Computed example of a mutant assay.
Amino acid sequence: MQLTTTRNKELKAKPDPQKLGFGTLFTDHMFNMDYHPDKGWHNPRIEPYTPFTMDPSTMVLHYGQGVFEGLKAYRTGDGHIQLFRPQANFKRMNYSCHKLCIPAFDEAMALDALKQLVHLEKEWVPNAPGTSLYIRPTIVATDPFLGVRASHTYRFFIILSPVGAYYPEGFNPIKILVTREFVRAVRGGLGDTKTLGNYAASLLAGEMAHKEGYTQVLWLDGVEQKYVEEVGSMNILFVIDGELVTPMLNGSILPGITRDSALALARRWEMPVSERKISIDEVYEAHRAGRLTEIFGSGTAAVISPVGTLKYEDQVITIGDGHAGPVAQKLFDAIMDIQYGKAEDPLGWVEPVV
């Protein structure tokens, strides 16, 4: 397939990189590609960022058949731009496609198109510390049809957004509320995919947590409601007796790329690592015994996010001294230094753009 580019004739003013929020500003161009059973994936193109026109019966609006990813482009100190593990994002996206009955796409072609799009929009990659260009690849069902079946046609698009910190707290510890009232996902469902309903299912519990002054919800398993799974926008990790412990991937937890990166670095540092079942009762018992020293989340948006306060039912605990712990800090610094080109990339994670 030949990728075509149509340049926008009216470019937007670039934002102040010191005043960026998250997910509110978008660049001048986007990537689009279509799928039809007779043509397969076809017509890949970079064109001006513009709204879609959709029939009111478009299937994604009624049945939620859509998948997405999230990754970032970073500006290095010498002005180069690079991506962090984009191949892993497109591989996971194709897995999500499989779970949602969406035709697979060529991952190498998608990566090449993304790099061309980011290259075109290189002036949008901010240079202030901690800022980046957030990348959102998405595929949605486009058949105009009311009926429960897989769509025959799809749109693959990529949009870009210059961003600052995901959480207002920045790298300062956040407060997490554990819920047993709601369930996000169960094994055999869509918990291990980045799909629309997976996040819609988290909204009500998240709103209730915010009203109590908590940043995010920590989900327990949907069967026994006793084993820790993940936070709404992050995987979760614990440091217990000097060991890095995280829930194992069991089909209801998103296989986070930052999670995988953190585990790989910890193993490289010869730190004990365990991927296993861990109950919320074990977490609280470890805290009572003084064995739990850190809790933190991992995800593309925040990278590493320390947890300072955890509430489960009527039990509220403070983790460590309420500040970021040494393991969270070391992982945050190591991943960020690789992403921004400040440190060696020992595991081949960086993909240069320009």
Rank of each mutant, 00 (worst) to 15 (best):
A286F: 04
G341F: 05
V316W: 05
L177N: 05
K39V: 01
M248Q: 14
L310K: 00
G290A: 06
L292R: 04
G23T: 07
I102Y: 12
N127I: 00
Y35C: 03
P37I: 05
R184S: 01
V303Q: 03
N8G: 13
E351C: 13
P51D: 06
T195A: 15
N8T: 11
H119S: 14
F26T: 08
M54W: 12
G325V: 00
A73S: 07
R136C: 14
L220T: 04
E123T: 13
G222T: 10
P44N: 01
L347N: 11
M271T: 13
A201D: 12
K12L: 14
H152N: 12
N127C: 09
I335Q: 10
H29W: 03
Y214Q: 01
V316Y: 02
V354K: 07
A324I: 02
F157Y: 03
L310S: 06
G64F: 04
N172R: 13
D345Q: 10
P346R: 01
V217F: 01
T193K: 04
R85I: 07
I253M: 00
H210F: 02
G66Y: 03
Y95R: 15
V327I: 14
T27A: 13
M59Q: 15
K311N: 12
D333T: 15
V283S: 13
G222H: 06
W124Y: 04
S96N: 01
H29R: 00
Y35S: 05
R155N: 09
V228T: 07
Q2E: 15
I102M: 08
R7W: 09
H36G: 04
L146W: 07
G189R: 03
Y154M: 01
P247H: 02
L237R: 01
I295K: 03
H287M: 13
P17M: 07
S305Y: 02
M59P: 14
V183A: 10
F31M: 06
Y95T: 15
H29I: 03
K194G: 08
K211R: 09
L100K: 13
L25T: 12
E123K: 09
I253Q: 07
I240R: 00
D34M: 10
L265I: 15
V163L: 00
I81P: 05
W124A: 08
E224L: 11
F22C: 05
I335G: 06
D345T: 07
K115F: 03
P144Y: 11
A108I: 10
K12R: 15
T215I: 03
I317E: 05
E47Y: 00
R45P: 04
K226S: 11
P326N: 08
P168W: 00
S298I: 03
E243K: 08
A343K: 10
C101N: 15
Y74R: 10
T318K: 11
A110V: 05
I257H: 10
G308D: 08
F52D: 10
L146F: 15
E285G: 07
M1K: 14
T246L: 09
S202C: 03
I46F: 02
P137H: 06
L292Y: 02
T215L: 00
T193N: 11
G325A: 05
I338K: 01
H210S: 04
D34L: 13
G79N: 06
D221Q: 08
A334S: 15
H42M: 08
D106K: 08
A264N: 15
D106C: 09
H152C: 12
V350Q: 05
N172Q: 15
L100A: 09
L254D: 08
M248N: 12
V303K: 05
L83K: 10
D78H: 07
I278H: 04
L100F: 12
K91R: 13
G213M: 00
H287K: 14
R45V: 13
